[in-house]
Design a protein around this nucleic acid. Structure first.
Lengths: 124, 124, 124, 124
DNA sequence: GTGGTCTAGACCACA
DNA sequence: GTGGTCTAGACCACT
């Protein structure tokens, strides 16, 4: 599992890391029951602050992806299914983006093509 | 044209306003050639600072949605079409969201349903 | 002599008018000794405020293009030649623009082409 | 890299600073990959407000000269090349200036001399 | 400590 | 009256 962080990106490092880990779990590179690297190791590997790593692990634990235990580090669990409320939250984030796309005169076909492309890329 | 701002949201006020104005232009509530309210009026209407409104107007002008003149206020123009590069930028923003959706075990059909729903809502 | 003013432009109206009048004098459409339209006439013709026209006439008089008399209106004189100091002022305005052009990786040949194009257009 | 700001000039402070920074990048005094001073440091160095500096950094980032990150400051990137549209914008700004130059009875040779002089100075 | 947002009040150029 | 610039001080997110 190789993770690359772009410190210059406008996307916060903790979000990049979060996305990368979730993608790793999704794609099966990190399997259920496996342990993630320790906060310290992962931090120094990626050249980022260990507080940042700890924060991400905390978020992933909150969202149910992993379980944090005092001595055994971070263990991967089953990703929680999306309920109606969670879905609504995603839509809230997506709506303004879709609005802007439409403002830019994109048509429905282009929109679908784009979304399919994203779906395919997301398994990278 | 009714705009509501949620000051407590984590989404910056200026972005909420930007989205609302673009949506207004898109949906035809604000037509090409029409004038937007002055920064002072809109600011006091919404209970936000005129500088925040100014910032939004500046961004919309930069992106080609409106034209700003010192004495005639903000006039709505034609929204600029989306080129390939612009499209790529949108995809960059969307990709991590799609990845997280997939992590949450959404399937392709649900995904399409969601995107269609968003498309329909975006015309508000 | 037809003058068109774009009220929406980011260029101040008074500058557009100033440029147009100077161009008219340069191109011979308005000749030495002739009278310009009255402040009132020109203002209502162009649909702009007569204060704005008055301001332009004042500037042109200051710069020596025309002479203002109480009863005879604005009479065209000889355009003043450019002395070293005047030249330096122009260069001060132009330098940052040239700097930005170079920053954008324009080469000397493109630069010359652009300047020649401008020279030719300026007699429009 | 020495920057001097003339607060009394009619040219906005933020534009003076923008020009100076672009010139610094162009002339190699600030190299690709280097960090600019923080908004606070540069502001207090120059005796101007940090928000004014922030505005300039924002513009430079929009135009692609630098990249801004929350914690690593402003990093110099590659200046973006000029496309046809960008070129047209420059010409729009330059045309009235050239018209006025011609009105002042400058001839083509003087014009070329002036432009060459500017070209040479711009690498300062 | 970094940049990002918001508020606030002042003064200016323009019409 | 309009938008444009500058200053100022506060709080926030991120590292």
């Amino acid at each position: 599992m190789i993770i690359s962080i772009d410190a210059r990106s406008s996307v916060p490092i903790y979000q990049q890391l979060k996305t990368a880990l979730i993608a790793g779990i999704l794609s099966g590179q990190i399997k259920e029951g496996e342990r993630l690297a320790s906060v310290r190791d992962l931090g120094s590997d990626l050249g980022i602050n260990l507080h940042t790593v700890r924060k991400v692990y905390g978020i992933l634990a909150d969202e149910g992806y992993i379980e944090l235990t005092r001595n055994q580090g971070a263990v991967v669990g089953k990703p929680p299914k999306l309920d109606k409320e969670g879905m609504a939250q995603f839509e809230k984030v997506l709506l303004p983006i879709v609005i802007e796309l439409r403002a830019r005169d994109i048509d429905k076909e282009q929109y679908h093509q784009m979304m399919d492309r994203l779906w395919d890329e997301s398994i990278g």
